[in-house]
Design a protein around this nucleic acid. Structure first.
Lengths: 338, 338
DNA sequence: TTGTACGCGTTATCAA
DNA sequence: TTGATAACGCGTACAA
């Protein structure tokens, strides 16, 4: 009833008020003034609910991520937000930690018009079955994947990420160049493709250098500080202690560093540590953490842009977009002991 | 047109389909089956847009926070999410960093039905003027404040937080007990009431102990790692170097620790450092950071619950809710040197 | 227990 | 340049 009231007060039709709001240039100066006066007087604000309903879009994007409070995602989100603001979208955040991991749960948000598109920054279970009724007779919703590698079922969607395999191989190569032969790896969660790819890169580089990877040298760190600390303790008590540890992300590297120092060992003299992501705490660690940097903000920006294109139907290209990674050498790595 | 199709296919009216969806018990078993079959066949999902429009509510809550990627907010968000899930709300996140700081911008989201309520976890400018047309002839929207202290204009809203003044005073007392007389303070941003209160508590405790606070001992750290590092450097080069530094939050404490060690000083032998928040990195610092813990998850839960009450109109009480803080003594603080 | 029919506030189409 | 009016999809009061 609200636009009506304004119209009534201004002595014009609702159509004119609507036009004034959406296409002011179509309204004569004189009329504009009247309408604006009525709006001021009533304190009218258009009902977004009705507007979205009419337009059939929410201007909402769901960003699915593993957990907020991950300092790495901070920068990614910054990039996303910049584009979102620019293009008039709001961001709805869901974390897979407290929510379900079902892909359908998120796609349904689009089908039921809760959101216009989905930005997937986490590994989640893909469609239940490709032949599934729901997924087969519906158009694929606008989805873009960021950071994560994709499973076969998902590679139909655009994605933006670094080459995690190559990046991890680079990091491993660097450790090998420093003379390390026994290298441990603290892996992420088993269902995370991203950390799985990093492990793959690690193993690949080791194989290429003809170095063996003792099964006890690869430990799950659960992608948390705590998990990494447990993992590090296990590595340190291994009968053949590694002289270097590659952590699948910086968060886990921080935990590992703590435990190594706690055990009375020196970094990098006794053990070298390398991480992945280059979060802001990497630099202020003691010692500053050697790591592999991703262009986080850029990834955020690009995924968001592609998502908007997907929503508009202008993204025809489903090729994954690979952005460059970069090895950042600090003080947590050094030549192998002895 | 969608519910119509289902109704048609099931051979019932749209009203029956709607009832089946919202009040299944009002529909006869036999009819239910038919409707469900039709839904399955079409893959129908109710249009949330239309539903929200009809119901006049979005089931969306806007959480306004300074910046994502703050590890402290991680826990607060966890609490918020738990309640949100339970009560069927989705969370829309806005950060004040990339968005405007205008209070009206957020209240307008409620007035325009973009969201049902607002959870304010950041300091922002309150209403422009209390006599302002907009704010005066409109009902106050459902808003709850968390973490932050409030200005006079905002204390009409419910809030949940620790007593930052008392907590900071406690921390300061502890340092004084350790024999420190020259204590520095790394403050947050000038517009943050929260860190301002902590500074107030610090000064209060100092005054009570009849210790003077050199003007050069209170430095702004901008609530960032970088800002704190600059602040710490300034404190270290002060002609009368403090023997202890109170940081208005842990993030800044981490930066300060780094700079102090960089300058070749020992913590806590040369300088003690104390933080605020007890983020997860506090414990793994070298040395582990003494700090003041807030019950983050609980704060998140309670603010969210009160917000839902405010939305339902069942929160009559606007008394601020104060939750307990706790001093966590670790190794970054020790007796004053000499 | 089910069906009919109206209205929610907005935008878009068409005619004036 | 403006006005009348039909949709958008759903929920519900009321009637059957």
């Amino acid at each position: 009833m609200s636009i009506k009231k304004v119209a009534q007060l201004a002595g014009v039709s609702t159509a004119t008020v609507s036009r004034y709001l959406n296409n002011p240039e179509q309204v004569k100066e004189h009329t504009r003034r009247k309408v604006q006066a009525a709006i001021d007087e009533t304190g009218y604000a258009p009902n977004t609910l009705a507007r979205n309903f009419r337009r059939g879009r929410t201007s909402l994007i769901v960003v699915v991520l593993p957990t907020v409070g991950d300092p790495f995602l901070d920068n990614v989100m910054r990039g996303i937000w910049r584009v979102a603001d620019e293009l008039g979208y709001s961001i709805l955040i869901r974390d897979t930690q407290s929510n379900s991991h079902e892909f359908d749960e998120y796609t349904d948000m689009v089908f039921s018009k809760q959101a216009d598109g989905i930005l997937l920054l986490a590994s989640i279970s893909p469609f239940e079955e490709p032949t599934d009724r729901k997924s087969s007779n519906k158009v694929h919703p606008p989805i873009v994947l960021g950071l994560e590698s994709v499973t076969a079922e998902l590679n139909q969607f655009p994605s933006v990420r670094v080459d995690n395999v190559a990046a991890a191989a680079d990091g491993t190569d660097y450790l090998i160049q420093l003379g390390h032969h026994r290298i441990g790896f603290i892996a992420g969660k088993r269902n995370s493709l991203l950390t799985h790819d990093r492990e793959k890169g690690f193993r690949k580089a080791m194989r290429k250098a003809k170095l063996s990877v003792d099964s006890g040298w690869v430990v799950e760190g659960e992608q948390t500080l705590e998990g990494a600390r447990r993992a590090a303790r296990r590595l340190l008590t291994h009968k053949q202690r590694p002289t270097a540890i590659f952590c699948a992300n910086d968060e886990m590297a921080l935990g590992a560093i703590h435990e190594i120092k706690n055990a009375g060992l020196k970094i990098p003299q006794d053990i070298s540590v390398i991480g992945f992501d280059d979060i802001r705490y990497a630099e202020i660690m003691d010692p500053p953490l050697t790591t592999i940097a991703q262009p986080a903000e850029e990834i955020g920006e690009r995924t968001m842009r592609r998502l908007c294109q997907a929503i508009d139907g202008t993204d025809t290209d489903a090729e994954p977009e690979i952005v460059p990674h970069k090895l950042i050498v600090r003080k947590s790595t050094g030549t192998a002991p002895r």
